[in-house]
Each structure stands twice: as C-alpha cells, then as structure tokens.
C-alpha cells in the first residue's frame, strides 16, 4: 500500500514540476486532483472543528454522571453560540432570490467586527510600539555604543522619519520634501532587498527537499 502511495506522490510531484515547462494535461490532472481533494479536505476539517467541535459541543455539552448518579452537563452550555449559527443561516439566504439581500447582514457583522478589532490592535502594535522603539540616542556618551551602533541608530531614525515622509499623501514630493521622500524610498528599497536576500536561501532548501524525495524516498538513489 505504502509503495503505491509513494508512486502516487511521485507522480503528482513530477506533474506539478512539469508546469515549469508549459501547461500540459499532466499538470491539469494534478491541478484537478489538488483542487477537488483539498476543497473537500478543508470543508471536512472546518465542519468537524467548528460546527461539531465548537458549536454543537458548546451548545450541547457532553453529559456526565454527578456525585449522586444524575446525568448532567459536563460544562455550562453556551447558548450565545446560536447567534453565530443564525448568522450562518442568514448567509445561506443568498440561495433564495427574493430575500438574498439578507445575507448582507452577516457580512456587515463580519466587516464591523474585523474593522473594530483591527483598528486598535494594529494601532497599538504597529504605531505605538514602533514609535517607541525608534526613540534612541544618537550620541555614544554615557552609553556603551560603538561607532557602528551610533551610525546604525542615526540611520534607523533618519530612515524611519524619511520613510514616513514618503507615505505622506497631503504634500507633493517636491523640493526638500521630495528629497527626503527619496531617501525614504531608498531605505525602503534596502529593506526589500534585505528581505529578498534573506528568503532566497530558504526557498532553495524547499526545492532540495523535493529533489531529496524524488531521488531518495522514491527512487532510492540517494540516502
């Protein structure tokens, strides 16, 4: 059985790689398998985890025997979860043409929640903490800072400051403001370069992993 499964895995691996040459029936077959199987997979995982694990068990908790031999709920039922299920059912109203617009209610609920939650979360983690982190000394006196550290600090402060100027919408990038914005975009480009260079190596190791599977696990040519 495992031998067959290994061949199936190898067949699918080569099928996907064949896309690099060009679109072909082998890739199309792999793609069709991937889409069908994975869509089913995720529905099942979400169904058991969320509908059964969270909703059903939350509203109808499993029973257990208490000290006097009575069958009682193991935990308090959370009837508020029914609100979630009602919103879910409202979502399905899209299937009924005349009242399809009701499905906008759960959508509006989700959009309100996401906006409300992210507003403060992002503000706190992105703005407050980053501004705090940028408050750093630019001189080494009374600090054990090397020349490189000081230059580093100066670059961090100037880079962050000019980077923010680059994102400024209310003023045209002209004159000194334009020059500052230019420094800002240079800093941002160095950031992108660093991020790019940092990721290249790890991406190569992914390929090495697949080559290892084909020539090691499947063909047994390398140990």
């Amino acid at each position: 059985m495992e031998h067959v499964a290994l061949w199936v895995a190898a067949f699918l691996t080569l099928g996907i790689i064949s896309f690099l040459y060009k679109d072909n029936p082998w890739y199309k077959l792999c793609e069709a398998i991937f889409v069908g199987i994975s869509a089913g997979y995720w529905f099942i995982v979400l169904f058991w985890d969320n509908i059964v694990g969270k909703f059903w068990v939350g509203v109808f908790p499993p029973k257990e025997l208490n000290d006097v031999g009575e069958l009682v709920n193991s935990v308090e039922p959370d009837y508020w979860l029914i609100v979630g299920a009602v919103l879910g059912v409202l979502m399905l109203m899209r299937l009924i043409p005349n009242i399809g617009w009701i499905s906008r209610w759960p959508l509006a609920f989700i959009i309100g929640c996401t906006s409300g939650l992210y507003l403060i979360n992002y503000f706190s983690s992105n703005m407050m903490r980053q501004v705090q982190g940028t408050i750093m000394p630019l001189l080494g006196m009374n600090y054990e800072l090397s020349t490189y550290d000081i230059i580093g600090n100066i670059i961090i402060v100037i880079g962050t400051f000019t980077g923010l100027i680059y994102f400024y919408f209310s003023k045209e990038h002209k004159g000194w403001f334009g020059r500052a914005a230019k420094v800002g975009i240079w800093t941002i480009m160095i950031t992108f370069g660093a991020s790019f260079g940092y990721t290249v190596m790890s991406r190569m190791s992914l390929l090495i992993g697949r080559v290892d599977f084909l020539f090691g696990d499947w063909l047994g040519l390398i140990n």
Binding site: V131, T134, I135, P137, L139
Partner: peptide
C-alpha cells in the same frame, strides 16, 4: 509619529550625553 520621534530622540540624546 514624526514629531514624537524627533522629540524623543532629542530628549534621550541630550539626557544621556
């Protein structure tokens, strides 16, 4: 954000130096 960064950096630099 920019004003706070300038003020904070000046303050900590002068304070420690």
């Amino acid at each position: 954000a920019m004003s706070v960064i300038i003020l904070g950096v000046l303050a900590v630099t002068i304070a420690t130096a």
